[in-house]
Protein backbone atom coordinates (compact mmCIF):
# COMPACT_ATOMS: atom_id res chain seq x y z
CA UNK A 1 0.00 0.00 0.00
CA UNK A 2 2.82 2.37 0.85
CA UNK A 3 4.60 1.77 -2.42
CA UNK A 4 1.38 2.40 -4.24
CA UNK A 5 0.81 5.67 -2.47
CA UNK A 6 4.36 6.91 -2.99
CA UNK A 7 4.39 6.18 -6.67
CA UNK A 8 0.92 7.54 -7.18
CA UNK A 9 1.56 10.91 -5.65
CA UNK A 10 3.40 12.62 -8.55
CA UNK A 11 0.89 11.20 -10.99
CA UNK A 12 -1.92 12.42 -8.83
CA UNK A 13 -0.45 15.91 -8.70
CA UNK A 14 -0.01 15.85 -12.46
CA UNK A 15 -3.62 14.83 -12.83
CA UNK A 16 -4.60 17.67 -10.59
CA UNK A 17 -2.69 20.14 -12.75
CA UNK A 18 -4.23 18.78 -15.92
CA UNK A 19 -7.68 18.77 -14.40
CA UNK A 20 -7.29 22.29 -13.14
CA UNK A 21 -5.79 23.43 -16.41
CA UNK A 22 -8.54 22.05 -18.57
CA UNK A 23 -11.20 23.77 -16.52
CA UNK A 24 -9.23 27.02 -16.29
CA UNK A 25 -9.46 27.19 -12.54
CA UNK A 26 -7.34 29.50 -10.48
CA UNK A 27 -6.63 29.13 -6.78
CA UNK A 28 -9.67 30.15 -4.83
CA UNK A 29 -9.74 33.60 -3.30
CA UNK A 30 -10.20 33.64 0.48
CA UNK A 31 -10.81 36.90 2.30
CA UNK A 32 -10.24 37.55 6.02
CA UNK A 33 -13.22 37.91 8.32
CA UNK A 34 -12.13 39.44 11.63
CA UNK A 35 -13.26 38.15 15.02
CA UNK A 36 -16.35 39.63 16.64
CA UNK A 37 -19.61 38.70 18.24
CA UNK A 38 -22.93 37.78 16.68
CA UNK A 39 -26.54 38.04 17.76
CA UNK A 40 -27.46 34.77 16.10
CA UNK A 41 -31.04 34.26 14.99
CA UNK A 42 -30.71 30.90 16.71
CA UNK A 43 -30.99 31.03 20.45
CA UNK A 44 -31.75 28.55 23.19
CA UNK A 45 -32.91 29.12 26.73
CA UNK A 46 -29.51 28.08 27.96
CA UNK A 47 -27.61 30.13 25.40
CA UNK A 48 -29.26 33.56 25.18
CA UNK A 49 -26.33 35.91 24.66
CA UNK A 50 -24.27 36.97 21.66
CA UNK A 51 -21.92 34.33 20.29
CA UNK A 52 -18.18 35.01 20.11
CA UNK A 53 -16.82 34.39 16.62
CA UNK A 54 -13.11 33.77 16.07
CA UNK A 55 -11.44 35.16 12.96
CA UNK A 56 -11.33 33.03 9.83
CA UNK A 57 -10.85 33.38 6.10
CA UNK A 58 -13.82 32.69 3.84
CA UNK A 59 -13.99 31.81 0.19
CA UNK A 60 -15.00 35.00 -1.60
CA UNK A 61 -17.42 33.12 -3.84
CA UNK A 62 -19.30 29.82 -3.71
CA UNK A 63 -17.55 26.86 -5.33
CA UNK A 64 -18.27 26.89 -9.06
CA UNK A 65 -19.04 24.05 -11.44
CA UNK A 66 -15.63 24.48 -13.06
CA UNK A 67 -13.89 24.25 -9.70
CA UNK A 68 -15.91 21.18 -8.78
CA UNK A 69 -15.11 19.55 -12.13
CA UNK A 70 -11.40 20.02 -11.41
CA UNK A 71 -11.89 18.41 -8.02
CA UNK A 72 -13.65 15.42 -9.60
CA UNK A 73 -10.78 15.00 -12.04
CA UNK A 74 -8.30 14.96 -9.16
CA UNK A 75 -10.43 12.81 -6.86
CA UNK A 76 -12.44 10.48 -9.07
CA UNK A 77 -13.79 8.64 -6.04
CA UNK A 78 -16.21 11.58 -5.75
CA UNK A 79 -17.54 11.20 -9.27
CA UNK A 80 -21.20 10.37 -9.49
CA UNK A 81 -20.62 6.79 -10.57
CA UNK A 82 -18.11 5.96 -7.84
CA UNK A 83 -19.13 7.89 -4.72
CA UNK A 84 -20.76 5.52 -2.21
CA UNK A 85 -24.50 6.08 -1.85
CA UNK A 86 -24.02 6.50 1.85
CA UNK A 87 -22.10 9.74 1.13
CA UNK A 88 -24.06 10.93 -1.90
CA UNK A 89 -27.63 9.84 -2.56
CA UNK A 90 -29.00 9.57 -6.11
CA UNK A 91 -29.55 13.32 -6.63
CA UNK A 92 -25.78 13.86 -6.49
CA UNK A 93 -24.64 15.70 -9.65
CA UNK A 94 -27.81 14.35 -11.23
CA UNK A 95 -27.82 16.89 -14.05
CA UNK A 96 -24.16 16.65 -14.96
CA UNK A 97 -23.27 15.04 -18.24
CA UNK A 98 -20.53 12.43 -17.92
CA UNK A 99 -18.89 11.64 -14.62
CA UNK A 100 -16.77 14.76 -14.30
CA UNK A 101 -18.25 16.84 -17.08
CA UNK A 102 -19.80 20.02 -15.77
CA UNK A 103 -21.53 20.44 -19.13
CA UNK A 104 -20.76 22.72 -22.02
CA UNK A 105 -24.09 24.45 -22.03
CA UNK A 106 -24.19 25.11 -18.32
CA UNK A 107 -22.24 28.07 -17.11
CA UNK A 108 -18.98 26.87 -15.60
CA UNK A 109 -18.91 29.99 -13.48
CA UNK A 110 -22.25 29.21 -11.87
CA UNK A 111 -22.19 27.75 -8.36
CA UNK A 112 -22.03 23.98 -8.18
CA UNK A 113 -25.19 22.47 -6.69
CA UNK A 114 -26.46 18.90 -6.31
CA UNK A 115 -23.61 18.15 -3.91
CA UNK A 116 -23.91 16.34 -0.60
CA UNK A 117 -22.47 17.46 2.72
CA UNK A 118 -19.83 14.74 2.58
CA UNK A 119 -18.80 15.76 -0.94
CA UNK A 120 -18.66 19.44 0.03
CA UNK A 121 -16.50 18.57 3.03
CA UNK A 122 -14.11 16.60 0.84
CA UNK A 123 -13.85 19.48 -1.63
CA UNK A 124 -13.02 21.95 1.14
CA UNK A 125 -10.40 19.60 2.58
CA UNK A 126 -8.82 19.42 -0.89
CA UNK A 127 -8.03 23.12 -0.73
CA UNK A 128 -6.95 23.15 2.91
CA UNK A 129 -10.29 24.34 4.22
CA UNK A 130 -13.47 23.11 5.82
CA UNK A 131 -17.13 23.96 5.69
CA UNK A 132 -18.05 27.01 7.79
CA UNK A 133 -20.01 26.56 10.96
CA UNK A 134 -23.52 27.99 10.91
CA UNK A 135 -22.38 30.88 13.09
CA UNK A 136 -19.47 31.66 10.77
CA UNK A 137 -21.81 31.70 7.80
CA UNK A 138 -24.43 33.81 9.56
CA UNK A 139 -21.78 36.25 10.82
CA UNK A 140 -20.40 36.90 7.33
CA UNK A 141 -23.91 37.03 5.88
CA UNK A 142 -25.07 39.69 8.34
CA UNK A 143 -23.05 42.26 6.39
CA UNK A 144 -24.22 44.41 3.53
CA UNK A 145 -21.86 46.38 1.32
CA UNK A 146 -20.87 48.89 3.98
CA UNK A 147 -21.85 47.52 7.40
CA UNK A 148 -20.66 44.40 9.25
CA UNK A 149 -24.18 43.91 10.60
CA UNK A 150 -26.96 45.39 8.49
CA UNK A 151 -29.72 43.26 9.92
CA UNK A 152 -31.48 46.08 11.69
CA UNK A 153 -32.13 47.74 8.34
CA UNK A 154 -35.58 46.69 7.09
CA UNK A 155 -34.73 47.77 3.56
CA UNK A 156 -31.76 45.40 3.44
CA UNK A 157 -33.75 42.53 4.93
CA UNK A 158 -36.45 43.15 2.32
CA UNK A 159 -33.87 43.09 -0.47
CA UNK A 160 -32.42 39.72 0.47
CA UNK A 161 -35.91 38.36 1.06
CA UNK A 162 -36.81 39.41 -2.47
CA UNK A 163 -34.59 36.65 -3.85
CA UNK A 164 -36.82 33.97 -2.36
CA UNK A 165 -39.75 35.12 -4.46
CA UNK A 166 -37.75 34.60 -7.65
CA UNK A 167 -38.67 31.58 -9.76
CA UNK A 168 -36.23 28.76 -9.14
CA UNK A 169 -36.47 27.02 -12.51
CA UNK A 170 -34.04 29.16 -14.51
CA UNK A 171 -30.30 28.55 -14.73
CA UNK A 172 -28.24 29.80 -11.81
CA UNK A 173 -26.35 33.05 -12.37
CA UNK A 174 -22.55 33.15 -12.37
CA UNK A 175 -20.86 33.80 -9.04
CA UNK A 176 -19.39 37.23 -8.44
CA UNK A 177 -22.27 39.46 -7.40
CA UNK A 178 -21.62 42.57 -5.34
CA UNK A 179 -19.06 42.17 -2.55
CA UNK A 180 -20.16 42.66 1.04
CA UNK A 181 -18.35 44.50 3.82
CA UNK A 182 -15.73 41.73 4.07
CA UNK A 183 -15.30 41.24 0.31
CA UNK A 184 -17.42 38.09 0.32
CA UNK A 185 -19.82 37.63 -2.61
CA UNK A 186 -23.14 35.87 -3.13
CA UNK A 187 -23.99 34.94 0.46
CA UNK A 188 -27.52 35.95 -0.46
CA UNK A 189 -29.33 35.71 -3.73
CA UNK A 190 -27.74 32.78 -5.56
CA UNK A 191 -27.83 29.45 -3.71
CA UNK A 192 -28.36 27.89 -0.31
CA UNK A 193 -25.09 26.75 1.26
CA UNK A 194 -24.06 23.77 3.36
CA UNK A 195 -22.59 24.42 6.79
CA UNK A 196 -20.49 21.96 8.79
CA UNK A 197 -22.95 21.78 11.69
CA UNK A 198 -26.13 21.64 9.61
CA UNK A 199 -27.24 18.89 11.99
CA UNK A 200 -26.81 21.16 15.03
CA UNK A 201 -29.54 23.62 14.24
CA UNK A 202 -32.28 21.65 16.00
CA UNK A 203 -35.14 23.89 15.10
CA UNK A 204 -38.02 23.56 17.50
CA UNK A 205 -40.50 25.20 15.15
CA UNK A 206 -43.21 22.56 15.34
CA UNK A 207 -45.16 21.13 18.21
CA UNK A 208 -42.56 18.95 19.85
CA UNK A 209 -43.64 19.95 23.29
CA UNK A 210 -46.35 19.11 25.80
CA UNK A 211 -47.25 15.45 25.79
CA UNK A 212 -45.81 14.68 22.37
CA UNK A 213 -43.67 11.54 22.81
CA UNK A 214 -41.12 13.07 20.43
CA UNK A 215 -40.23 15.37 23.26
CA UNK A 216 -38.06 12.55 24.51
CA UNK A 217 -35.89 12.90 21.45
CA UNK A 218 -34.29 15.90 23.07
CA UNK A 219 -31.85 15.51 25.88
CA UNK A 220 -30.34 18.40 27.77
CA UNK A 221 -31.60 21.92 28.03
CA UNK A 222 -34.43 23.51 26.09
CA UNK A 223 -34.54 23.36 22.34
CA UNK A 224 -33.43 26.09 20.02
CA UNK A 225 -35.86 28.80 19.05
CA UNK A 226 -35.72 31.75 16.70
CA UNK A 227 -34.66 35.03 18.19
CA UNK A 228 -35.00 37.37 15.25
CA UNK A 229 -38.21 36.46 13.50
CA UNK A 230 -37.93 39.39 11.11
CA UNK A 231 -34.97 37.80 9.39
CA UNK A 232 -37.06 35.36 7.36
CA UNK A 233 -34.44 34.88 4.70
CA UNK A 234 -31.95 33.45 7.18
CA UNK A 235 -34.61 31.47 9.04
CA UNK A 236 -35.58 29.81 5.77
CA UNK A 237 -31.98 28.67 5.36
CA UNK A 238 -32.04 27.13 8.80
CA UNK A 239 -35.31 25.39 8.05
CA UNK A 240 -33.88 23.98 4.84
CA UNK A 241 -30.59 22.85 6.38
CA UNK A 242 -32.38 21.24 9.31
CA UNK A 243 -34.47 19.16 6.94
CA UNK A 244 -31.50 17.67 5.09
CA UNK A 245 -29.56 14.48 5.53
CA UNK A 246 -25.81 14.53 4.93
CA UNK A 247 -26.02 12.49 1.71
CA UNK A 248 -28.77 14.69 0.26
CA UNK A 249 -28.31 17.24 -2.46
CA UNK A 250 -30.64 19.70 -4.14
CA UNK A 251 -30.48 21.79 -7.29
CA UNK A 252 -30.25 25.02 -5.31
CA UNK A 253 -27.85 23.96 -2.55
CA UNK A 254 -24.16 24.76 -3.00
CA UNK A 255 -21.36 25.55 -0.60
CA UNK A 256 -18.24 27.55 0.10
CA UNK A 257 -15.31 26.84 2.40
CA UNK A 258 -13.46 28.61 5.18
CA UNK A 259 -10.01 28.11 6.62
CA UNK A 260 -7.77 29.60 9.26
CA UNK A 261 -6.80 33.14 8.46
CA UNK A 262 -3.45 33.26 6.67
CA UNK A 263 -3.57 29.55 5.82
CA UNK A 264 -2.74 28.37 2.33
CA UNK A 265 -3.41 24.94 0.90
Amino acid sequence: MHACRRKALPALLLGLLLGAGSAVVQAADYVPVPAGSLRSVLVSDADPGPVAVASYAMRATPVTRAEYAAFLAAQPQWQRETAPLVFASPGYLAHWGAAADAGASASLTAPVTEVSWFAAKAFCASEGGRLPSWVEWEYAAAADATRADARDDPAWLARILGWYGRPADGPLPAVGGAANFYGVHDLHGVVWEWVDDFNALLVDADSRAGDDPDRLKFCGAGAISFKDRANYAVLMRIALLSSLKAADSTSSLGFRCVRAEGATP
Binding site: S44, A46, D47, D196, N199, A200, L201, L202, F218, C219
Partner: peptide, 25 residues
Protein backbone atom coordinates in the same frame (compact mmCIF):
# COMPACT_ATOMS: atom_id res chain seq x y z
CA UNK B 1 -18.41 12.70 15.92
CA UNK B 2 -20.06 15.29 13.69
CA UNK B 3 -19.63 13.06 10.63
CA UNK B 4 -21.05 9.97 12.33
CA UNK B 5 -24.02 11.96 13.63
CA UNK B 6 -24.58 13.31 10.12
CA UNK B 7 -24.47 9.81 8.72
CA UNK B 8 -26.92 8.46 11.30
CA UNK B 9 -29.25 11.45 11.10
CA UNK B 10 -28.55 12.44 14.71
CA UNK B 11 -28.91 16.16 15.41
CA UNK B 12 -26.91 17.60 18.28
CA UNK B 13 -25.75 20.92 19.58
CA UNK B 14 -23.31 21.49 22.42
CA UNK B 15 -24.50 24.32 24.68
CA UNK B 16 -22.23 26.65 26.65
CA UNK B 17 -23.41 24.95 29.84
CA UNK B 18 -21.92 21.69 28.60
CA UNK B 19 -25.34 20.15 28.10
CA UNK B 20 -26.00 18.74 24.67
CA UNK B 21 -29.26 19.04 22.84
CA UNK B 22 -29.58 15.94 20.75
CA UNK B 23 -32.03 13.69 19.06
CA UNK B 24 -31.97 10.05 20.05
CA UNK B 25 -32.30 7.27 17.54
Amino acid sequence: TRALAALLGVQYRILPSGDINHSTV
